[in-house]
């Protein structure tokens, strides 16, 4: 009897042991593979959806979502700074210009005191109408993110301090006014605009300036947008190595060296 009890107990011990062992093998070797397969399947589904979208049927390469700038209601800033206003920092300018299509310039460039927070809303382009949900795929919202400042209980749009007319007047008269007058005009137009914009990881982090949940992103998407993944990419992009074959200056120099060598018949 005692022997039987011991055997039963030891069988239980062995089974517990074996199941923990099996679970460890699953966690270490099998679960990551299963997870990767699941993610790949989800990605494929999304991929199929995008490829089969009617607007992209005739495209050969373009399978990504395209975000189009609102040509009807461009920001007055674009009149001077162009549709692709970010050109200085080669490494991140594509990111920044891409953002300019759906984010008001003031989101990053507005003057703020240290740690000051604004309210952000999706506003239908050309209107004051606020989006109450995000319909369709990214890039199809026909709206931009606009910062608002709380003033005496009401919200004030921060992207409307400059009007098209002011810019128009400046552009028409800029060759006839003096340097001082031009400088004063520029100063006035850039009132409220900061010399030092916020950087990517000021918003794309947890408890960053923007609460992506309040912008109606799905919880998972909001988490991605404020996760360290985005910050990680941006941090890596802070040290971005462009192959020299794409740098015209280096290539011209090399070609000249080659030609000189040829001339000298080396």
């Amino acid at each position: 009897m005692k022997r039987l009890l011991i055997n039963i107990l030891m069988t239980i011990v062995f089974l517990l042991h074996a199941s923990f062992f099996a679970w460890l093998i699953w966690v270490t070797y099998l679960r990551p593979v299963a997870y990767a397969a699941k993610m790949a399947a989800a990605y494929n589904e999304e991929f199929e959806e995008v490829v089969s979208a009617s607007s992209l049927k005739d495209h050969f390469h373009n399978i990504d979502d395209s975000i189009n700038i609102d040509k009807q209601n461009p920001s007055p800033c674009f009149k001077c700074h162009g549709t692709y206003p970010h050109s200085k920092a080669k490494d991140v300018r594509a990111f920044l210009n891409g953002h300019a299509f759906f984010v008001a310039c003031e989101v990053c460039h507005v003057k703020r005191e240290e740690g000051q927070r604004f309210v952000y809303k999706w506003i239908k382009t050309g209107t004051d109408e606020e989006l109450k949900s995000l319909e369709g795929r990214p890039g199809q919202y026909s709206a931009i993110i606009v910062p608002f400042k709380e003033e005496g209980g009401s919200l004030k749009r921060l992207d409307k301090s400059l009007t098209d007319k002011e810019v128009q007047n400046y552009l028409q008269s800029r060759h006839t006014i003096t340097g001082d007058e031009a400088a004063a005009a520029k100063l006035k137009m850039h009132k409220g605009i900061s010399q030092k914009p916020v950087f990517c990881d000021d918003c794309h982090k947890e408890n960053g300036y923007i609460d992506f949940n309040k912008l109606y992103y799905k919880a998972e998407r909001a988490q991605v947008l404020s996760s360290t993944e985005v910050v990680g990419v941006i941090q890596k992009y802070k040290e971005f190595y462009i192959p020299t074959m794409f740098d015209p200056n280096i290539m011209i120099e090399r070609r000249m060296n080659l030609e000189n060598a040829r001339k000298e018949k080396r």
């Binding site: 030891m10 011990v13 062995f14 042991h17 923990f20 062992f21 460890l24 270490t28």
Partner: peptide, 17 residues
């Protein structure tokens, strides 16, 4: 993981079984 598996597969099995 290595240590846990070593203890479980090697040590405990030896001690008990």
């Amino acid at each position: 993981t290595l240590a846990a598996l070593a203890i479980m597969v090697w040590h405990i099995i030896t001690v008990f079984f």
